[in-house]
Design a protein around this nucleic acid. Structure first.
Lengths: 215, 215
DNA sequence: CCCATTTCCGCACGACCGTGCTATTTTGTT
DNA sequence: AACAAAATAGCACGGTCGTGCGGAAATGGG
């Protein structure tokens, strides 16, 4: 790998970490240059503009996401196992130490949701791809006969996504203990209700343990 | 109302609108002054600092939230009706034209989740209050006998919240059609599974004491 | 080792930022 | 109408921002 590529990747790594905590638009070229130990203009030369830097940051995160979340799951057998692997890898990804502020895509999503431009366009496209991959894995599980035929794969993908959104919200902002367990419990419920029914069962949210008294 | 209060509220109204689209930290005093038609220093004199302005923005939004979401719901009868009103008002609130970028709290949440300080502290406190109010309404519905006794009110409040988070994400970022319907469908499912079970609607014979035990 | 190419730095620019200080205008009360 | 108080404007300050340009330094294939 050439020297240029080397520093370029170092910059992007630092930028992903910064963007996950303070947001994509809050990463400044000066501060980024300071943290990787080079000059502002030297860093800037690698990216024609800040907007382009932001896109490259997202592109870098997508590459990592595919390598660490999607690809390993695709090596799992078709069916629920693969869906499960996608979710669990995704969950692990969103608490990756390389992103101290949590999942970059979730952070970027609420930041860019009303700011048109190429950065937003790229994020939207990648999110669509990811949702499509999720739906596809679910559809395969239906074809394999593990999930019920009348399942709506898009709805389940949507519900899986909302688990992660809620986990992100409650664990990062509110520092809610047990958020992880709550997320996985909801996940298991969804899996349970997606499987072909063996015996009729009811899906309700039951209290897990005795709750501590809280106003 | 004195002149000072008048302009102060005009400023806050514009600031809430701006913050909902571009974020709390992206609102600049200069631009804000431009949109309300006054000088930077004249505007600044109303708030001792930008950080204080951000807190006042949140405080203003909370006041509106209580007036438009919580208070009307508290006038509904105790039970599911009140829970339903809370959710529906909340939903309507998050597409209020005064916040063109969607719910300010959701936007602020992912922006501040890793940035300690008084602004974050205030947001966290207000979110805790809101979750508490939701849980409380659910608990009342349990006491009234409309919701099942083994329900976990915090879990249901959590699930309601995740509906809104998902709706926000999918409708604002991905412009997903049918997001609203999907949200309300999930809401109705949650209500259905929270209610005390009625007589079995299927004519399958069921032994009365053979309910599933806690696994 | 040479030398073209790539990589990086120093410096400067205009713009906008938040924030004070001092006037000036507007408001509201007597 | 007079006048104290409140509200707003003018102006300036030190900083940081993104972005260019020219030159210095490092790299790496022959």
């Amino acid at each position: 790998m050439s020297k240029g590529q080397q520093t370029r990747e170092a910059v992007l790594e630092a930028a992903v970490a910064a963007a996950s905590t303070t947001g994509l638009s809050a990463i400044s070229i000066g501060e980024l240059a300071r943290t990787v130990g080079m000059s502002k203009s030297g860093l800037f030369a690698h990216f024609e503009s800040k907007e382009n830097l932001q896109i490259e940051v997202l592109r870098s995160a997508v590459a990592h996401f595919i390598a660490e979340v999607v690809a390993p799951a695709l090596r799992k057998p078709r069916g629920e196992a693969r869906v499960r692997a996608l979710f669990e890898n995704w969950f692990a990804w969103s608490s990756n130490p390389a992103m101290p502020g949590g999942c970059l895509f979730i952070a970027a999503a609420s930041e860019l949701d009303d700011q048109p431009g190429p950065v937003r366009d790229y994020l939207v496209a990648s999110q669509r791809d990811w949702l499509g991959a999720l739906s596809q894995a679910i559809r395969i599980a239906m074809d394999e006969g593990e999930f019920r035929k009348d399942l709506d794969p898009d709805q389940l993908a949507h519900d899986l996504y909302s688990i992660l959104l809620a986990y992100h919200h409650f664990s990062r902002l509110l520092h809610m203990r047990g958020a992880r367990e709550r997320a996985f419990r909801t996940f298991e419920q969804l899996m349970e209700s997606a499987r072909v029914p063996r015996a009729p069962r009811r899906t309700v949210s039951r209290k897990p343990t005795r709750r501590a008294k809280r106003s």
